[in-house]
């Protein structure tokens, strides 16, 4: 499994977590924030980010608002009340998975 696959599986949790820290964000801002927080290690591709955002929106975890910024329309995403609960659940589930994987990887051969 490549780093890309691990990231794809965690993408929704990452988006929800970023939105708990910041009230609202737009797509490009999310990609930049991930780059910044991981010191340019992780790159979210647009082809993965937007489908994930739209899926979270269709599931009712995110709501969108639009406004005009610098001669263009910008779509901001923010967490709904269900999204806040989902963010906490997803973060916990992801941390638990990482804890289990870490434990598994630390097994020393006999």
């Amino acid at each position: 499994m490549s780093d890309k696959h691990i990231l794809k599986g965690s993408l929704q949790a990452i988006i929800l977590q970023l939105l708990t820290e910041q009230d609202r964000m737009y797509g490009y801002e999310i990609t930049q924030k991930v780059k910044q927080l991981t010191a340019n290690e992780l790159h979210l591709t647009e082809g993965a980010l937007y489908p994930a955002l739209h899926k979270l929106e269709s599931e009712g975890f995110l709501e969108a608002e639009v406004e005009v910024v610098e001669n263009r329309v910008r779509k901001y995403y923010k967490l709904t009340s269900e999204g806040k609960t989902e963010a906490a659940n997803k973060a916990l589930a992801l941390l638990e998975s990482f804890r289990q994987i870490t434990q598994l990887l630390q097994i020393k051969p006999l």
């Binding site: 737009y26 490009y28 639009v66 910024v69 610098e70 263009r72 329309v73 779509k75």
Partner: peptide, 14 residues
């Protein structure tokens, strides 16, 4: 339409 605007904003920022 909303995807057009969203992609436009992303493209312009990048």
């Amino acid at each position: 339409i909303d995807l057009q605007y969203e992609i436009l904003d992303h493209m312009v920022c990048a």
